[in-house]
């Protein structure tokens, strides 16, 4: 029998979908669990933060960090995980790119707080909670910009198969590399030469289930998105929103999409601009926090 590896799973601000995806290995867990000595995983196991803090540095074989830093407590936990773990994995798109909450970077923190705690229709006599509260970060950035990670592992969430593949590699000491292919490479739909003259919105018309969604004029981002998911969304006639982020080597997902669209669409720039009144929401989904636009905003804020 293999010696069990010490593993810690930490949740920063997130939806816990990555945890659910791991649990969704279901019966396969029966084979995986004996190989793991879980030393921290609040979603499932009762160890507390102080237990993690008390562990010697680098005493954890594999650390998985899910979620991104929306609070100062998240930053503490992230840095703690870096100190305690030998191999640190950026688990899911929040950890790799900031996640969907990175879209909040379009506004100042003050505006986010006001909307939720002071101005919501159902709130009366609101306030910003402070007692025993950790306080928020000014914006959401990828965890990989705060500490060094050994393994990026994107997905919103990574599929159970992805999770098994990554865990198996890490447990046996093999390298885990991200694929170079795109969602289109995994998609079963028939593709033709593209010449889009008009974009349709997701609810419009009827989708031909056999043909490429982008060819039909739906903004399907499979062409610019890393192929790990097995093209789950296009397979069920739903456009890819790019939730796994770009293939390796591409720094700015949305910028890549915009430049590619210029070539794919038979439309002048004004028409394209009109078709997408919300470029940030359309071209970034889980990775706005990793974009140049968001970084420029951060920089402007700092200079103020």
């Amino acid at each position: 029998m293999i010696m069990a590896k010490r593993i810690a799973l930490a949740q920063l601000t997130s939806c816990w979908g990555c945890d659910q995806s791991l649990v969704d290995l279901h019966l396969t867990l029966l084979e995986v669990l004996p190989q793991l000595e879980i030393v921290y995983w609040p979603a499932v196991v009762d160890y507390k933060l102080k237990d993690l803090e008390a562990m010697p540095d680098e005493s954890i074989h594999i650390g998985l960090v899910e979620g991104s830093c929306r609070t100062k407590e998240d930053v503490h936990l992230l840095k703690l995980m870096r100190k305690k773990a030998k191999i640190l994995v950026a688990w899911g798109s929040c950890s790799c790119y900031g996640g969907v909450q990175g879209l909040g970077n379009q506004w100042e923190l003050k505006e986010l707080l006001e909307r939720k705690f002071l101005k919501a229709d159902t709130v009366e006599d609101g306030r910003i909670p402070e007692e025993e509260m950790p306080g928020f970060t000014e914006s959401v950035v990828p965890n990989t910009e705060i500490v060094k990670f050994d393994v990026p592992f994107p997905g919103c969430p990574p599929t159970s198969e992805n999770t098994l593949e990554a865990l198996s590699a890490l447990l046996t000491g093999k390298p885990y590399d991200l694929p170079e292919k795109t969602v289109c490479d995994q998609c079963p739909k028939e593709r033709k030469e593209k010449s889009i003259t008009k974009f349709k919105r997701a609810h419009e018309g009827h989708i031909d289930p056999d043909k490429c969604l982008l060819d039909q004029g739906y903004l399907c981002l499979g062409f610019a998105t890393i192929g790990m998911c097995g093209a789950q969304c296009p397979t069920v006639n739903t456009p890819c929103k790019g939730c796994f982020g770009p293939p390796p080597g591409i720094k700015d997902h949305g910028a890549k999409i915009i430049s590619a669209l210029g070539a794919i669409a038979d439309m002048d720039p004004e028409e394209l601009e009109k078709a997408f009144p919300d470029p940030i929401g359309s071209f970034y989904f889980t990775d706005y926090g990793a974009s140049y636009l968001s970084k420029i905003r951060d920089k402007e804020r700092e200079e103020k």
């Binding site: 601000t13 929306r70 609070t71 407590e73 998240d74 969907v100 909450q101 879209l103 909040g104 379009q106 506004w107 505006e111 986010l112 909307r115 939720k116 919501a120 509260m133 950790p134 919105r201 997701a202 919300d278 940030i280 929401g281 359309s282």
Partner: peptide, 14 residues
Amino acid sequence: SSTRFFEKFLEGRF
């Protein structure tokens, strides 16, 4: 001890 402000960042989306 955490929240993500969906009520704000859904603004402006399709």
